[in-house]
Design a protein around this nucleic acid. Structure first.
Lengths: 145, 145
DNA sequence: GTTATTGCAAAATATTTGCATTATA
DNA sequence: TATAATGCAAATATTTTGCAATAAC
């Protein structure tokens, strides 16, 4: 008996999601690889484990996970969604050179304190992200900055 | 002599942009309508003034304006870019009901104070936005929330 | 008059939809 | 076995590209 899979099954069931094989594998990939992958990356990785999986199932699953607040969607570069398993509140950093998305821990969290909301809008989600050049790309000697 | 157009010409020239008729009209639309429009909205409005304008020119112009830091691109819903004339730093609110994007003035600006950057990344852009239901949609009596 | 810009058509990329097959409970 | 999920193919949406016609200086 696989404990990790059973744990995932319980998480999905607790959210009212039928724990199909595909959904379990996608969930575990997101949980164990915190790289904010896009659909293409998820599809490529899933194909290794489930050769017959389709992009439609990836999209179906991610949209379902978003509805059920299991994952959140990041829209950072205007042309694709990136996916993140919801845990504690944090922001993101997008490197314009290597395109990697990394987590930024929040010291002064947007929306968490001292943020006046003079607009009377109902705020349901708070998103903060930065763009720039990550430290790895900064230290790469061959790069023009 | 049109003073507003001459002013726009000077702004474009100061950024090293050849002030063509199309670019001037697009710039003035963005400047006078702070509604964070997408390409479709800009195209529809431009067509009224320049019936022969093409989507390609809209894209060319917006990409050029972004390169020259005249406008910034917002990626809020994962399926399109919205455009904003760069002025003072501010955040955005995206209403999931009416899809309007409004400005949020910054009290505790993300990236402006007390934000520790333990990552040593070079931060070039700071983006903060909220999602929820705007006050107009909240007060609309016929709506399920 | 030379170079840069525009605009059409086609391509590329990302996501959704219709529907028949298959899996789940 | 009834219902829900999967996966293929086609459709839709957004943005980019190649290139000939046109405009800017």
């Amino acid at each position: 008996m696989n404990t990790a899979v059973n744990n995932t099954k319980n998480i999905l069931l607790s959210k009212g999601i039928t724990p199909t094989f595909q959904r379990i594998v996608i969930y575990e990939f997101l949980d164990q690889n915190r790289i904010h992958p896009n659909v293409d990356t998820i599809f490529a990785m899933m194909t290794k484990q489930i050769p017959t999986i389709s992009r439609t199932t990836i999209y179906n699953t991610l949209n379902l996970f978003m509805e059920k607040n299991l994952v959140s969607g990041l829209s950072l570069n205007g042309n694709e969604m990136n996916f993140d398993i919801n845990t504690h509140p944090h922001h993101h950093f997008y490197c314009t050179i290597c395109k990697k998305i990394t987590d930024i821990e929040i010291t002064c969290p947007i929306g968490k304190n001292k943020l006046k909301n003079p607009s009377n809008h109902l705020i349901q989600e708070v998103h903060g992200y930065f763009k720039g050049i990550c430290k790895d790309c900064l230290s790469a000697p061959s790069l023009d900055k």
